[in-house]
């Protein structure tokens, strides 16, 4: 029986929600409704040059008790990511950091080897490191050894809403890596989030799928339900698939032809 006690742990912190919410590309005025309807306990943020022309601060719009997960987007190598992570901690974000390192501006694909280097440095500085990565088993093992708290493989390119382009490789990580696998980037619709949860992912991160939806809080609720459904299906164990033929699901004690 699935209960509310189905928790997952990141760096010693327990969470019951398996939906990590992005905060990019939509009005900060929608954040509260998005967090509420997503049931999210973790929200991602970006670190940028401050600007006094903007009088609103995103921090004021995030409900209390939600864990902040700053990312290192904009970093092109490990040392820039480390610099951004330290600034985020100084900004009061706590110890969580999502490492995001990109050299490629067309596809925004993560630089896996720089990500391993940054993970190693930041884990030693007591950050709870969640590295965003291209799903490669060898790199995922390196991230484990480097001290990552989870591994965040991409489903398809960031912001594309194209879904599970890397499905089979994410499954390999789920099967082989003894850390939470959080599928991040490219998940475009709730059914895809449900599918990775059925596969055994620990959590899903989504941003653009919500930010570009017709009704953001409604889509947040749809993702929440899909993620919960997928999780329950995984915990249940999926029914078997017949390679051919059929199996009646009704009793064959027919009375019509006796």
């Amino acid at each position: 029986m699935v209960t509310l006690e189905d928790k997952f742990t990141l760096g010693g912190h327990e969470f019951t929600s398996r939906f990590i919410l992005g905060s990019g590309k939509y009005s900060m005025r929608l954040i509260e409704a998005a967090v509420r309807d997503a049931g999210a306990q973790i929200i991602t943020l970006a670190v940028r040059r401050a600007n006094t022309r903007e009088h609103e601060n995103i921090i004021d719009y995030i409900p209390k008790g939600v864990t902040l997960l700053p990312n290192t987007s904009g970093a092109r190598n490990a040392s820039e990511a480390v610099r951004i992570a330290r600034l985020a901690r100084e900004l009061g974000c706590g110890n969580f950091v999502k490492i995001e390192i990109m050299r490629d501006s067309k596809y925004l694909l993560p630089d896996n080897s720089e990500t391993v280097k940054a993970t190693e440095i930041l884990a030693k500085e007591n950050f709870i490191v969640l590295p965003y990565m291209y799903p490669d088993l060898n790199i995922a093992r390196d991230l484990v050894n480097a001290g990552a708290a989870a591994v965040m493989p991409l489903a398809s390119p960031i912001g594309s809403n194209r879904g599970l382009a890397t499905r089979d490789f994410i499954q390999i990580l789920i099967d082989e890596i003894d850390l939470p696998i959080i599928v991040d980037a490219g998940i475009g619709r709730p059914s895809q989030a449900c599918e990775v949860m059925e596969m055994g992912a620990a959590a899903v991160m989504a941003n653009t799928a919500l930010a570009t939806a017709g009704d953001l809080p409604l889509m947040a609720a749809a993702f929440r339900q899909a993620i919960e459904a997928g999780r329950k299906a995984y915990l249940s164990g999926l029914g078997r698939v017949l390679s051919r033929g059929a199996a009646a699901s009704d009793p064959l004690t027919g009375f019509l032809h006796d």
């Binding site: 990019g24 590309k25 900060m28 943020l45 670190v47």
Partner: peptide
Amino acid sequence: VEIIGLMGGG
């Protein structure tokens, strides 16, 4: 000098 803050992001 860099003056840094938080904003929305994924």
